[in-house]
Write a protein that binds this DNA or RNA. Structure first.
Length: 523
DNA sequence: AATTAGGATATCC
DNA sequence: GGATATCCTAATT
C-alpha cells in the first residue's frame, strides 16, 4: 500500500489533499486480494505498448506495474540505463518522459534494496527479464524454476492502477470514493513528501474487493478498459500531476521492502518445487553446498539440458569443484569457463541457493519465531529476510542473501594452498556461530544488494573491500556472534590479527577502512 | 573523532 | 590451542 503513495508527486501548492484521495482506489487490492485474482491483471501478453500516451507530461509510470522486472539497484546509480534497458526489453513501457519507479512491493525486496548490484540480485532481476536465453524476452525465459509465466503472474500481483487512478473514468470503485472530501473507507494517499497518513476501513475495503472482482468478470476483451484509461490523461492534467522523480523513492524504499516477501515466497516455492523434482531425478541435495563434484556435474548437465544450452564436453575438467566450491564461483568465472551458458548456470545456481536458503529460513522461522531471524547459527545460509516486521532496530537487521559458501581452512597456509570450501557446518545452536570473521565479511560482501551500504568490494578481483559503515558491520558481526558489545574497535582488532596469519592485509596504499583478502582467501 | 596498530589477557569452543 | 573478545596505549588520519 505504501507503494501507491509514491506513484505521483503532486505540486503541493496546486493539489489539495482532498485530491489525493482520487488515487486511493488503486491501493485497495493489495492487502487482501489473492494471487489468482491478479491473473486478471496479467494483461501484458496482449497489451499493446503503443497504447501508452506519448504526451511528455503524462505519468505513464503509473502503469508500470510489471516494472518489477527492472533491475532497480542500478537505477540508483544510473536511472537512464535502466530506462534504456527496460524500454529495449519491452518490459517497461515506451514513453518519452517516463521516470522510473522502484519495483512494486510485490517484488522480493532482497533483490533491490541496495545501490549496488550483486550476482544474486542481478540474476534474480535479469532472470525476470529472461536473460537466460540471451534476450530480454521475459515471456520466453527458459528458467525451469521460475518460468516466465509464473514470474509474470507473481510479479503482476500489483494490479495496474490506471482504471482506479483515473478520476475521470467512472468505475464502481472510483465512484465509491469519488467524493474526495470523504476519505472514509478509502486509502488516503498524500504527496510523498508529506508525513503520509494512511487509513483503511476494512469493511469498505472488502466491499471494494467484491466490486473489483465483479469488475474483473466484466473485463473487456483486448483490455479495452485499460486502453481507455491509458489514453485518458485528463485526470493528470486536471490535478497537475507529474511523474515522481526516482530520487523520491529512494528514501521510501526501505518501507516498501517488506512487502516483497509474499511474492518472493511464491517464487521460491515455485523454484523449490522444481528443485525437488530435479533433486529426486539426480539424487542430489537441494543444498548445492552438499553436492559432490560428481553431483555438480550432474546438476550442470541437467541444467544445461533444461535450458537447452549446448552440452559442455569437458564439464568434468572445467568444473572440478564440489558444490560448496561451485557456489563460490563468480558469474565471471562461470562465463569464462562456459561462455555460452555460464551466466545461466550461475544464475540458476543462485536461485537454487536462494531457494534452499529460503527453505532453511522458513524452518528457522518455525523453530525460532522470535525476532532473531536475521541469522541463526544452525545454518550458514540466511533467508532472504524472513521477518519484515517493523522493528526499532530494523536498520541493524542483518539481512544476508545466500552467501558464498564459507571456505574453511584448517591450517592457514596461504602461500601454498587454496582454501578448501567446505559446507558451512560446524555452527551450533544457541549463541553465536563458529563462523570466522573473514568468512562473515565475505558473506556480507557477497550480498551487496543488502549490505552494500555497510561493506562493499573496491576491487573484487583483488579482494579489496571497504567497510563503509564500521558501526553497522560491527553490529552485524556482534549479532552473528552473539556479542552485543561488539564494536568496530574490537572487530578491527580481529582483522589485524589476520595480518600475521596471512588472511587479510591492508592495501598497498593504506586507506582507512579498506582491507584486502590475501590470495588464498579470496579467489 | 575515528581509525590504525599491536600488546596483554580473558573467554569460548 | 585456536579464534576471537576485550581492554589498553599510542600513533595516525
Amino acid at each position: 500500500m505504501e507503494y501507491e503513495k509514491m506513484i505521483f508527486m503532486t505540486n503541493a501548492a496546486d493539489m489539495p489533499h482532498s485530491c489525493s484521495t482520487q488515487f486511493k482506489l488503486s491501493t485497495e487490492p493489495f492487502p487482501i486480494i489473492q494471487p489468482d485474482t491478479y491473473a486478471a491483471y496479467a494483461y501484458a501478453d496482449s497489451f499493446d505498448l503503443s497504447l501508452l500516451p506519448e504526451d511528455a507530461g503524462i505519468p505513464t509510470t503509473v502503469y508500470q506495474y510489471n516494472a518489477p522486472q527492472i533491475k532497480i539497484e542500478s537505477a540508483w546509480e544510473c536511472a537512464g540505463d535502466i530506462q534504456e534497458q527496460a524500454v529495449a526489453s519491452g518490459a517497461a513501457y515506451a514513453g518519452s518522459s517516463q521516470q522510473l519507479i522502484p519495483p512494486p512491493p510485490a517484488y522480493p525486496h532482497s533483490a533491490y534494496p541496495s545501490p549496488q548490484s550483486s550476482p544474486l540480485q542481478s540474476e534474480f532481476a535479469t532472470f525476470a527479464y529472461g536473460k537466460y536465453n540471451g534476450s530480454y524476452d521475459c515471456l520466453s525465459s527458459p528458467c525451469p524454476s521460475l518460468d516466465a509465466t509464473s514470474i509474470k503472474q507473481e510479479l503482476h500481483i500489483l494490479p495496474p492502477s490506471p482504471p482506479e487512478s483515473n478520476c475521470e473514468t467512472p468505475s464502481p470503485r472510483s465512484s465509491a470514493c469519488s467524493d474526495s472530501s470523504s476519505s472514509s473507507g478509502c486509502i488516503k494517499t498524500e504527496p510523498l513528501d508529506a508525513d503520509v497518513e494512511s487509513f483503511i476501513d476494512l469493511n469498505t475495503l472488502l466491499l471494494q474487493q467484491q466490486q473489483q472482482q465483479q469488475q474483473q468478470v466484466d473485463i473487456k476483451p483486448n483490455n479495452q478498459v485499460l486502453r481507455e484509461c491509458l489514453e485518458d490523461t485528463t485526470f493528470q492534467r486536471k490535478h497537475n500531476l507529474k511523474p515522481l522523480a526516482l530520487e523520491s523513492f529512494i528514501g521510501g524504499l526501505a518501507e516498501v521492502r517488506g512487502d516483497f516477501e509474499p511474492v518472493i515466497s511464491l517464487a521460491l516455492e515455485h523454484a523449490k518445487r522444481e528443485a525437488d523434482a530435479i533433486c529426486a531425478e539426480l539424487q542430489i541435495s537441494q543444498d548445492p553446498n552438499g553436492w559432490t563434484s560428481a553431483q555438480v556435474h550432474a546438476w550442470l548437465r541437467s541444467t544445461l539440458a533444461q535450458f537447452k544450452l549446448p552440452p559442455a564436453a569437458n564439464l568434468e575438467l572445467q568444473f572440478s569443484e564440489d558444490g560448496a566450491a561451485l557456489a563460490l564461483l563468480s558469474e565471471e568465472e562461470f562465463t569464462r569457463r562456459l561462455p555460452e551458458s555460464g551466466s545461466t548456470l550461475h544464475a540458476q545456481l543462485e536461485i537454487w541457493k536462494m531457494s534452499y536458503a529460503d527453505q532453511l529460513g522458513n524452518q528457522m522461522e518455525a523453530a525460532q519465531p522470535a525476532n532473531d531471524l536475521l541469522w541463526t547459527p544452525t545454518v550458514a545460509y540466511q533467508s532472504s529476510n524472513v521477518n519484515h516486521e517493523e522493528s526499532e532496530d530494523e536498520e541493524d537487521m542483518e539481512v544476508i542473501a545466500p552467501p558464498a559458501v564459507l571456505p574453511v581452512i584448517a591450517t592457514p597456509t596461504p602461500t601454498t594452498s587454496t582454501p578448501t570450501p567446505k559446507r558451512p557446518g560446524g555452527t551450533r545452536n544457541g549463541g553465536g556461530s563458529h563462523i570466522h570473521l573473514w568468512q562473515f565479511l565475505k558473506e556480507l560482501l557477497s550480498s551487496p544488494q543488502v549490505n552494500g551500504t555497510a561493506i562493499r568490494w573496491i576491487d573484487r578481483s583483488k579482494g579489496i573491500f571497504k567497510i563503509e559503515d564500521s558501526v553497522r558491520v560491527a553490529k552485524l558481526w556482534g549479532r552473528r556472534k552473539n556479542r552485543p558489545a561488539m564494536n568496530y574497535d574490537k572487530l578491527s582488532r580481529s582483522i589485524r590479527q589476520y595480518y600475521k596469519k596471512g588472511i587479510m592485509k591492508k592495501t598497498e596504499r593504506s586507506q582507512r577502512l579498506v582491507y584486502q583478502f590475501c590470495q588464498p582467501y579470496h579467489q
